[in-house]
Design a protein around this nucleic acid. Structure first.
Length: 926
DNA sequence: AATAAAAAAAAA
């Protein structure tokens, strides 16, 4: 034993070893940061983790609840032990000098290249040896010491691999350093109650534990907390002082959680009518009467119905019950787009406000939530002292506190609404995926529009369901019709994770099925009676009008020319009034169709074009204009024609008297058809029956099915041909009764071998789907079952920003900028708004309103269109300092005496038209 | 031989 040094008390921890120093009046001792973090981890265990999470952890440690809690506090209290190294301590020069002058730290190796998380991971196995943690056992799962070391090494969000010889060992520091690390481990261990080592540490449990460690560290590292603690921590660093101090931390730790908004909201007992402004419909009644009374365990609920059938309310009611039954602290409501997330955020916030008894913060999660004005309206404290909320909410309890708005934190909130991508990042090999899994697995995971994803994203979703199944986390999937194969894949993934089944459950449409996550528990489905009530109550018969067309080739005089057919089917609108949509498959088809219709239509007909290739602000204006007239409470015009692309399939609650569409795969066709006669209202006599016109592209003989070259690979050949074949001979579609049959016929075909072309295309389509799933597998973390080394959650060459939750052509944000003959640069074609050279914030930084204003002018564009474009000027250098502005690509358009001109490169000529949007003309193309 | 819509990106 070395002599007792100044600052080192009899248990051997030196208070001069600092843990935090940035922005603090004096360095904060490492021991106290470790004890703080242990205390917060304990508070998280008691107050934040859901029962299923505690169970998974306790089972993974093969022990009981209270032992598991002590172990987690212990390990959390080790997370920064790698800071007791010369390399780290040198980072604060004066603290380092003070430390060395008072103690014996001769070894000053370390050039700062060894990060403290890695140092901790390297040092821990040896440090844990005296506590009986096995070191060199063959089976990886038994290498307890290495597992704990990896958890500690992963506390910055990435797991590391340090088995085998590692150069960093030399930089840990010998002598005093090594003694200090041992002393820290000893004091922390005793302070948390000297938990015995567990007999196992399961991998899936370790991931959650890592999440707890990361979260505890974040909470305990807040500057205001450290400042406050600075004056409170004991003078001595012995075991006794540490134990006393840890006990005293229970109130401050709980306060940290409360202030951050982490907790379990309590729900009031309310009836359906108290939550929503109407009585339950057939679907909702069936959930309330047939499902809620029998649910007593986590599981997967699949609800299928058409959009507008009240799935959201049904899901919220079911999620509330599942949360109560499972002890989950809330839910995450996942949606396919940012726009639908914004909309759902408002609804969920209202729901939460009515339901919550106390704080129940709701967060909004997507990349642009910071420019959602409603979400950004914070609670403000007025000078009088009473908290006031800037919003129309009945209660301020649903406003997310500041902490939850920080990066990567929103998913930890009790209630969250956002894009599904935010959840899918949990199963990609991205930084902090353990934290995302922690946030998700404590709640009910609700996925809206589960049919809306391609094979790539669905594959990621399956992967996530597998993990959530393993965590015993309840899930609700909402969907329109799903091909039975796809439904089976989703259900199967969850069952596999949960270790039940496979039950090969088939999902009824419309209706619901609940698959419990407990072996032996029976599946529950909507009763035949209720299902019949649901079907007959909402049956609509669509007249299907398939028109052979020649797709934009040849003469307009040809009666089968697409343009001529469009005019013909729209004639009643022009002559007698009414509202119709023409949904096209490509932007340029939509632009051309719009020109044809606009030039042909009479004065009184309002013709509008909508697609994605408008500046964001303009697209919003057009969307608002359309929904304000054709939405549920819309001020309906006498006659209106909307020409659009697939944007019309997405979420917009519009109602047309007549729907005209290009041929698309069956699922999308039915989705589009849903925009026809959506609400109950009086219609022009000619449109008394709902009618869908399908423009079916044909070859020169007017019979043979062809896929127009201009459609590229937007839709698979097989899906178009199979849909085309299915539609022949069909003249009505009864919704919802006949929907599943039509979908199955196309997506799960029984007899295609008779048709060699179809069967070849089917193979091609399946190969494509398989390739997409294969691509998805590349970026995904392994399944929890059989996961041996945690490093597999992080091991990847792909940097964080490359992680992708959607497959498809790269896309850029393009800003049309104008330059006049004098070389002046403008944001608008009139030359009134100069291109902002700097922001109005400190150091010329851009304020968020300014960033928002610029982003509002950008247009999403497939990246390959820009290939060969060499911008004549760069955007202002100051834009490079802003994360959003620096990614914008300029498109320079000349201001000519005649008005704004096009930009040209390669074979392209591109200009921005106020009515048509961005027009991309390609020379040589027909 | 050509192409929809959709998302993402700061922590201790």
């Amino acid at each position: 034993m070395e002599g007792v040094e100044l600052g080192v008390d009899h248990d051997g921890v030196d208070a001069g070893i600092w843990g935090k120093s940035n922005h603090l009046p004096r360095p904060y001792p490492l021991l106290w940061h470790l004890i703080d973090t242990a205390a917060v981890a304990g508070a998280l265990w008691d107050r934040y983790l859901a029962p299923n999470q505690r169970r998974v952890i306790a089972e993974g440690l093969a022990t009981d609840d209270s032992h598991a809690k002590s172990l987690i506090m212990f390990w959390a209290g080790l997370h920064d032990v790698g800071k007791a190294t010369p390399g780290f301590q040198k980072k604060d020069g004066s603290a380092f000098d003070a430390l060395r002058s008072a103690g014996s730290y001769e070894d000053v190796v370390g050039d700062g290249s060894l990060r403290h998380d890695t140092a901790g991971q390297l040092a821990l196995p040896g440090l844990l040896a005296p506590l009986g943690y096995p070191q060199l056992v063959r089976r990886v799962s038994d290498r307890l010491a290495y597992r704990v070391a990896q958890i500690v090494g992963g506390h910055h969000g990435r797991f590391q691999q340090t088995s085998g010889p590692h150069g960093g060992q030399l930089q840990l520091g010998k002598g005093g350093w090594s003694k200090q690390r041992a002393a820290l481990v000893r004091v922390v261990h005793e302070a948390v109650g000297s938990p015995k080592r567990p007999s196992a540490i399961g991998a899936a449990a370790s991931v959650l534990v890592t999440g707890v460690v990361i979260l505890a560290d974040w909470l305990a590292s807040q500057e205001h907390f450290l400042r406050q603690q600075s004056s409170r921590v004991p003078q001595y660093t012995g075991t006794e002082a540490a134990s006393t101090h840890l006990a005293a931390l229970s109130a401050p730790a709980a306060a940290l959680l409360d202030d951050a908004g982490l907790g379990s909201p309590s729900f009031r007992a309310v009836r359906f009518d108290d939550l929503f402004p109407h009585r339950p419909n057939a679907l909702q009644r069936s959930i309330i009467e047939e499902l809620l009374p029998v649910v007593d365990s986590p599981g997967l609920l699949v609800v299928t119905a058409a959009t507008g059938d009240g799935k959201t309310e049904a899901a919220l009611v079911a999620a509330k019950r599942l949360a109560e039954v499972c002890g989950a602290h809330g839910f995450f409501f996942a949606l396919p787009t940012m726009a639908t997330s914004d909309e759902m955020y408002r609804r969920v916030r209202a729901f939460a406000a009515r339901l919550a008894a106390g704080p129940a913060p709701v967060t909004l999660l997507h990349s642009m939530s910071w420019l959602n004005a409603e979400y950004e309206a914070r609670a403000v404290v007025d000078p009088g002292g009473a908290a006031e909320v800037v919003s129309d909410d009945p209660s301020g309890d649903v406003v997310a506190p500041e902490w939850l708005r920080g990066p990567k934190r929103g998913l930890l909130a009790p209630m969250a609404v956002g894009t599904v991508d935010q959840a899918l990042l949990a199963v990609l090999t991205t930084k902090h995926n353990a934290l995302r899994l922690l946030g998700l697995s404590g709640k009910v995971f609700v996925v809206d529009e589960a049919h809306a994803y391609d094979d790539f994203t669905t594959s990621l979703l399956c992967h996530l369901l597998n993990w959530l199944g393993a965590y015993g986390c309840p899930v609700v999937l909402l969907s329109a019709t799903l091909p039975s194969s796809q439904a089976a894949t989703l259900v199967g993934a969850y069952e596999e994770g949960a270790g039940v089944g496979p039950t090969n459950t088939s999902v009824p449409y419309p209706g619901w099925t609940f698959v419990p996550a407990i072996q032996g528990r029976a599946t529950v489905s909507i009763s035949p009676t209720m299902r019949e009530a649901l079907v007959s109550g909402r049956t609509v018969e669509f007249t299907l009008d398939v028109r052979p067309v020649r797709h934009l080739v040849g003469s307009e005089r040809d009666p089968a020319d697409r343009r001529a057919v469009v005019r013909q089917v729209l004639a009643p609108v022009a002559e007698q009034g009414g509202c119709a949509a023409v949904v096209c498959n490509t932007v340029s088809d939509a632009q051309q169709t719009y020109r044809v219709v606009r030039d042909w239509a009479s004065e009184g007909v309002d013709v509008v074009l909508l697609h994605s290739r408008f500046p964001a602000r303009r697209r919003e204006e057009i969307t608002t204009q359309i929904t304000s007239r054709l939405g549920k409470e819309g001020n309906r015009p006498k006659s209106m024609i909307v020409v659009a692309t697939q944007v019309l399939e997405q979420s917009l609650d519009l109602d047309f008297d007549l729907l005209v569409t290009d041929l698309v795969p069956m699922a999308q066709l039915l989705q589009r058809a849903g925009r026809c006669h959506r609400h109950h209202r009086t219609r022009p006599p000619w449109a008394a029956q709902p009618r869908v016109v399908v423009l079916d592209p044909r070859g020169p003989d007017g019979v043979e099915h062809v896929r127009p070259a201009a459609w590229g690979d937007v839709y698979a050949r097989y899906l178009l041909r199979a849909t085309h074949l299915r539609l022949m001979g069909v003249d009505t579609i009864a919704v919802p009764r006949a929907v599943q049959g039509h979908v199955e016929a196309v997506y799960v075909p029984q007899e295609i071998h008779n048709d060699p072309v179809l069967s070849a295309e089917h193979n091609e389509c399946r190969a494509q789907a398989m390739a997409e799933r294969g691509t998805a597998e590349l970026g995904v973390i392994p399944e929890p079952v059989g996961l041996a080394d945690l490093v597999a959650l992080s091991q990847t060459e792909t940097p964080e920003w490359r992680a992708s939750t959607r497959l498809g052509a790269e896309s850029e944000r393009v800003l049309c900028c104008y330059h006049d003959p004098d070389g002046m640069q403008w944001l608008d074609p009139q030359g009134r708004i100069p291109l902002p050279q700097r922001g109005s914030g400190p150091d010329g930084r851009f304020r968020s309103e300014e960033v928002r204003a610029i982003l509002q002018e950008t247009i999403p564009l497939r990246a390959d269109i820009l290939t060969g474009y060499d911008p004549p000027a760069a955007l202002p250098a100051s834009w490079g300092n802003n994360a959003w502005l620096k990614r914008i690509r300029p498109l320079w358009l000349p201001i000519l005496p005649t008005g704004p001109g096009p930009a040209t490169w390669a074979r392209r000529s591109v200009h921005l038209d106020p009515e048509l949007g961005l027009v991309v003309a390609t020379a040589g193309a027909e």
